[in-house]
């Protein structure tokens, strides 16, 4: 189980990396943490002719709150989220979610932006990006563009990123204290790919949901917000009945994938459960 041959390029500046992508993005592949890419290469399911190693591009190694955004540089590792990277509900959500991403040693290498670029349907970070409305900052020699998460994930392992582009940064909105967040995932074992997961962010005033963001991952070929469930919740008091209605709306709306571990009916059932539990978690102890 050894990778096919490739040539290796390790630029130390972003410009040099973008130059490599410009000249050979098609048969090349960027490696950051490599925790998804290297297994695929070991199985020879991925066989890039050229490997562009991002790890030497120090200018992309940052993680900071700035201007209402959490700015996540392309080299920020999962492990950087073990403690909340910013205050408020966004930070709390990220620190909760990261514990579900594979395992501790994997989290030391894998990167947030790498997960976004890889776009696995069961990626927790992709779900968070879709739910919170992340901006993906993509750069090429031709310039920079910002892509909303809603437009970024196209299908399983497929994104709006062009071959000559690199994700240099992902920006997450920092929610204010009026928001509550919750996350629930089910996987067969701890650390396995989730079969279904839900992330929620609710703005609650006086016990009533004023805004709702509900995203479901692992169920369809890419994570997405659930408008029907969000509508079902907005204007409702924070209560089990409203959560159940939103969970039912999710179950009714998703078109689940099928695989070894879950058929469509079971995945739908799980999506209902993870949604209800994520909502309960978000509002736990809020004393509606």
């Amino acid at each position: 189980m050894k990778p096919a041959p490739f040539s290796y390029h390790a630029p130390s500046t972003l410009d040099a990396m973008l130059a490599l992508l410009a000249e050979g993005g098609e048969d090349g592949k960027v490696i950051a943490g490599g925790q998804s890419l290297v297994p695929m290469m070991n199985f020879r399911l991925a066989r890039p002719a050229r490997l562009f190693d991002l790890n030497g591009v120090a200018e992309l190694d940052f993680l900071r709150a700035e201007g209402g955004w959490l700015r996540i540089g392309a080299l920020a590792r999962h492990a950087a989220f073990h403690r909340p990277p910013c205050g408020g509900p966004t930070g709390a959500l990220l620190a909760e979610v990261v514990r579900h991403i594979a395992h501790y040693p994997i989290r030391q290498r894998g990167t947030f932006a790498g997960s976004i670029a890889h776009a696995d349907p069961a990626s927790e970070w992709c779900l968070v990006a879709a739910t919170l409305g992340a901006e993906i900052v993509a750069r090429s020699r031709a310039g920079e563009r910002r892509i909303g998460a809603g437009d970024f994930f196209l299908a399983s392992l497929s994104t709006a990123l062009r071959p000559d582009e690199l994700i240099v940064e992902v920006r997450l909105p920092i929610l204010d204290a009026g928001w509550r967040t919750g996350f629930c995932e089910f996987s067969r074992r701890v650390g396995d790919f989730g079969i279904a997961m839900t992330a929620v962010a609710l703005r609650v005033e006086s016990g009533v949901v004023r805004e709702a963001r509900i995203g479901v991952g692992g169920v369809e070929d890419h994570p997405a917000r659930q408008p029907a469930a969000e509508q079902a919740l907005v204007g409702q008091p924070v209560a089990a009945r409203a959560f159940a209605a939103a969970a039912d709306a999710v179950a009714g709306a998703v078109r689940p994938m099928e695989d070894l571990h879950a058929d469509a009916a079971y995945r739908r059932h799980l999506a209902r459960t993870t949604t209800r539990r994520a909502l309960e978690q978000a509002c736990a102890g809020s004393g509606s």
């Binding site: 199985f43 701890v190 396995d192 070894l260």
Partner: peptide, 16 residues
């Protein structure tokens, strides 16, 4: 065979 990796052959970890 649909189970040819440790991602699908699920031996229990400590957590299970």
């Amino acid at each position: 065979p649909l189970v040819t990796t440790f991602g699908d052959y699920l031996m229990p970890t400590l957590a299970e």
